[in-house]
Amino acid sequence: MSEIDVPESHPRYQSLLTRHRIEDGVDRGITTRQGLIAEGRGEAFDYLLGERTISSSDDAARVAAALLLLAERPAISVNGNVAALVPAETVDLAAAVNADVEVNLFNRTDDRMRSIVAHLREHGTDEAGVAVRGLDADARIPGLDHERATVDADGIGNADVVVVPLEDGDRAAALAAMGKAEVVIDLNPLSRSAQAATVPIIDNVVRAVPNITGHARDLSGASRAELEATVRGFDADGALGAAEDAIRSGELG
């Protein structure tokens, strides 16, 4: 099934589209079969959210945009599922907040890294002036024994704010321990990643990434004082609680 075979009128259009993109990513060497399992787990939470961006998550996306605009060295971490689902949208976000994009994988191979880097470039990084990192692999995140510890010193290694969509909980905690501010996109408000985040956004990555970009463009003319006030007024625990309440009270359609 290709994307054009799924009519937009289908009630499961977005779900089928995302599954297809990850499946296609397996064939292209971008995603892994485990990525399909991870996507299915996220879909269960999204179903209970009504497959929509709730107000607390939209507020969090605006705070994330403010935090990224304040950052001196922002970076966006990209794994296989992110590359498959929102490649152009990730590039747009990076351009809007002047961030680098860095490929970071648990199942890391040279071929897969190069495939994802090429995929991001196909979706406009060079035209947008966005640096794609991950291939230097000249630094490590302390406290991790797997390949997601491998980073570029001039990318995630030196970043002050990191966007970590679909993140591993142990790496999210390790980044926080390094003193980095984190924007985590996760559909599970109880996950270790969301709990470790400076700004947790409980939303589907296909909605959250362009939503942050929209807020960043809206805030591009704001003063530093306005941006700082936006970040200072954010209640991460409140955002997580609101998302959990929405999931627990969700009505199945």
Rank of each mutant, 00 (worst) to 15 (best):
I4V: 12
D5S: 15
V6G: 01
P11M: 04
P11N: 11
Y13H: 15
Y13G: 00
S15Y: 04
L16G: 02
L16T: 04
L17S: 10
L17G: 08
T18W: 14
R19K: 09
G25H: 07
T32Y: 02
T32P: 07
L36N: 02
I37M: 13
E39P: 01
G40N: 11
D46L: 10
L49Y: 04
L49H: 08
R52D: 08
S55I: 11
A60R: 06
R62G: 06
A64I: 10
A65G: 04
A65L: 07
A66S: 10
R73I: 00
A75H: 07
A75N: 01
S77T: 02
N79C: 06
N79Y: 04
N79A: 10
N79D: 09
N79Q: 07
A84K: 11
L85T: 04
L85V: 02
E89W: 02
V91Q: 13
D92H: 09
D92L: 02
L93C: 01
N98K: 08
A99R: 11
E102I: 06
N104A: 04
L105V: 11
N107H: 13
T109R: 12
D111M: 12
M113L: 14
R114H: 14
S115A: 12
S115C: 05
V117K: 06
L120V: 03
H123K: 14
V130Q: 03
A137V: 07
A137E: 14
A139D: 03
R140P: 00
R140L: 13
P142S: 06
G143R: 10
D145M: 12
V151Y: 10
V151Q: 11
D152C: 13
A153E: 11
D154Q: 14
G157R: 04
N158F: 03
D160G: 03
V162W: 06
D168R: 08
D168S: 05
A177W: 09
M178L: 15
G179S: 05
A181Q: 13
E182Y: 00
E182D: 00
I185K: 10
D186G: 12
R192I: 15
S193Q: 03
Q195M: 12
A196P: 06
A196V: 15
V199H: 02
I202P: 05
D203F: 00
V205A: 13
V206E: 15
V209I: 15
H215D: 07
A216T: 06
R217E: 13
D218S: 10
L227F: 10
A229F: 01
V231M: 02
V231P: 00
G233P: 01
D235C: 10
A236R: 12
A236W: 08
G238Y: 04
D245T: 14
A246P: 02
I247S: 03
R248K: 07
